[in-house]
Amino acid sequence: MRRAIPLLITGIVGAVFVVQYFVPHYPFNMMSNWFSDWFAIVGACAIVLGALNLMKISIQKVIKRRADWGYAAVIVASFLLITIIGLAEGGDFRDPGTKFDWLYKFVYTPLSSTMFALLAFFVASASYRAFRARNFEATLLLLAAFFVMLGRVPVGYTITEFMPVEYRLSDLASWIMSFPQAAGQRAIMIGIGLGIVSTSLRVILGIERTYLGGD
């Protein structure tokens, strides 16, 4: 029963969405709307569940003094701080000038932007060590990266401004992005699309059951 009901729900919902795409009329459109609404409700509940789970794991880590428990303590403290401040400020807690807004603007935003900005350092280091003209394909990739990196920023335009329009780095970068790059992306997307179709069919028909957990 614990496996049969989820399989049934998945099969029915999946089949309705497939049919509704081709026949967007009653009763399939109505059922599709129901299931979309339910998905939003389940999604909202999942966020609460995820947050509570994070708290549970972090509190346990702090109590049992597991490795790096200090970070878990920061998570608990931050979670409680932002939740209490948000709740205390009522419905307008996200408006400019509120304490929640201050925390968002001056703590959360700089911290998370900093984490993302570290990528620049790793990209540079990885490019230095890994971008090698080892063979023909690698050389093509290297040249494409070279032209796109320079062509996508104003300096690429500035240093080739004296050249005819089609030969400037910015135009060359646009050409690479619009044609060879788009063709490659399209091939990948078609492959992914075919994979999604086959996997979805397996899930809808109950052949693929790994999402239920266990074997």
Partner: peptide, 23 residues
């Protein structure tokens, strides 16, 4: 954009330096 231009040029410069070392 000036920062981005500089960063791209630095990455390109290090790619060239890396390939010089490689060859």
């Amino acid at each position: 954009m000036l920062s981005q231009s500089f960063a791209h040029m630095i990455v390109v410069a290090f790619i060239i330096i890396g390939n010089v070392a490689f060859f």
